[in-house]
Design a protein around this nucleic acid. Structure first.
Lengths: 157, 157
DNA sequence: GAATAAGTACTCGGATATAAATTGTCCGAGTTAGGCAGG
DNA sequence: CCTGCCTAACTCGGACAATTTATATCCGAGTACTTATTC
């Protein structure tokens, strides 16, 4: 149950874009160079963020990506689900209906099985915690030196 | 970020073993037949549960698996980590140190990055919720009819 | 100098290739219970 | 009736194969900015 590496990439990129402000657009190549990531693959993730409405993209020369809305309104959950998809980690395959459960009254399975209920409860706690943290929170918590260096890195290019 | 199907298998097996009582041992083949699962692969998961101390196994004829301790003392987290491993879903690869971050004062990276902190917080909420639910809770919550049918299924074999 | 055309830089989306994790199978070795033969 | 051996049933552990997912690359099409050209 490993989370895609793309989540880390996406969050770092969002943080960077937040620091630069939404009036500036940054092309994929520049973001990829910032973290030494494969440009084409990073682009795929940025596109996913764009489809999810987290980022906005401008085509053409001097185009690139920027945050689609204020950092206060972007949660960690928004970014994670954009990359990982909407589905939860656990998928119930209803094995209780097979084998010993075959041929039983369908009404016996009307309620979801207790296992699914239990795991879903944990997943909801996870989502709730992710939704409670915004990009703005992250930006505020980061050391000032890192922000300064990042802005400087983007100033020259 | 999909959770292994083995978690569902493991939990259903633990539930079954709990209903049958820890004085009785059940071989892999019987458990596999109960849910129509591939016996050899299920066995691999049962072994993982045994290594984790959730199940106990007896070799030899009339051998098999049983719960290693009372259901009250087995949490969902115990089972999930036995199958999925001890590591969390998110792994920080420290991309902040690469590219723009290369050559900076190492002390600047002394604290873990805000992204890791944020995601870890959510993972801890997830683990806390899993640890709060025991096998005994699941057993109590399941419909009595299902328990009865399971016992009957195992009575004849 | 303004309008227009060509060129350049960039994103978008899909097709495709490669690496890795998951899922599933197989087999040999070790262990125990129960049956069987010999005394 | 007792003892020792044999066999069947089972786990254990590792090697291996198949399948799916994650990672990564490439290219054509479309879009916007810039420059060059024309009037």
């Amino acid at each position: 149950m490993r989370m895609s590496e793309g989540v880390e990439w996406a969050l770092h990129c969002c943080l960077t874009l937040g620091w630069l402000g939404s009036d500036r657009t940054v092309p994929t190549a520049k973001l990829a160079a910032t973290f030494e990531l494969p440009p084409a693959y990073l682009n795929k993730h940025l596109q996913a963020l764009t489809r999810a409405g987290v980022l906005a993209s401008s085509p053409g020369a001097r185009g690139g990506f920027r945050l689609a809305r204020p950092a206060e309104k972007i949660t960690l959950l928004d970014v994670v689900t954009a990359i990982e998809g909407r589905d939860g980690a656990f998928r119930c395959t209803e094995i209780r209906r097979r084998g010993a459960g075959a041929g039983r009254d369908p009404q016996e399975f009307a309620r979801q099985c207790v296992i699914t209920t239990g795991i879903r409860r944990a997943e909801m706690a996870w989502r709730r915690e992710l939704a409670a943290q915004t990009l703005a929170d992250m930006m505020a918590r980061a050391p000032a030196a890192a922000v300064e260096r990042t802005r400087h890195w983007y100033a020259k290019g």
